[in-house]
Amino acid sequence: MKKSMICCLASVLVWSGAAWAGEYPADPLDSPMWDYRANEILGDAEVVFDDAVQVIVPQLAENQHVFPVTVDASALPDVKRIVIFADLNPIPVAIDYRPINARAFVATRIKLDQRTPVRAAVQTGDGRWHVSGVWVDAAGGGCSAPPVSRVKGDWAQHLGEMRGAAWPDHDDTRIRVSFRHPMDTGLVENISAYNIDTLSVTAADGTKLAEMSVFGAVAEDPVFTMIVKDAGEAPIAVSARDTAGLEFDGSVSRRAGVDLLAQAR
């Protein structure tokens, strides 16, 4: 309880820019934190609840430390941002994704600190937020238990190790990239917050494809799936930076994905 309150204060400081217009549409999920989170995260832009935003999650949170969330908003035109957040998490926002030259699609895994709405807020070029989400039941403590690698003690040996590949996906390229990183929330005794905080994806010719702000609510050893508008065979660069300033760089290519597909039955 004490930890949650401290974290709420922290998140107010981070997201203090917007003034609350005071009028958001009634929440179909009837969340006790809807108005508060809407003000904090979406500010005074227009907000609509919109089923065109698909939030794809499993029917249960088998593991509250690693809860998969896929957002597909490709039915909406001119998507500028996709924010994944959980109302009742002490760190509500998991990622803030900007699909610059990419499809309005992103998947990752988040921590859940208790039963909570899990939502995607998708901002289109006209400034409007399109929001969708579901209640997810979860055991407590997803944000306040130490990561597995902290318990095992091997996090530093593997820090920043990247894996990934790219696959042809219709006319675009699907990329998946994982990082070994503890993604410490700062809510565990004697372990300060330490997480990857930015991610960028760049084509071989230097074109920026996508950018993401990443928060401590993303699960340990984070994995990101994106679909970028680059159908070429050249490697696509992925780089990330964490809150200690360490940088992790790698590149994914379609060759690796095609090799993997060849192994599938």
Partner: peptide, 13 residues
């Protein structure tokens, strides 16, 4: 599950 990883699916997919 092996095939799903090989095809580039995320967990929810």
């Amino acid at each position: 599950l092996h095939d799903a990883v090989a095809q580039g699916l995320d967990m929810a997919e």
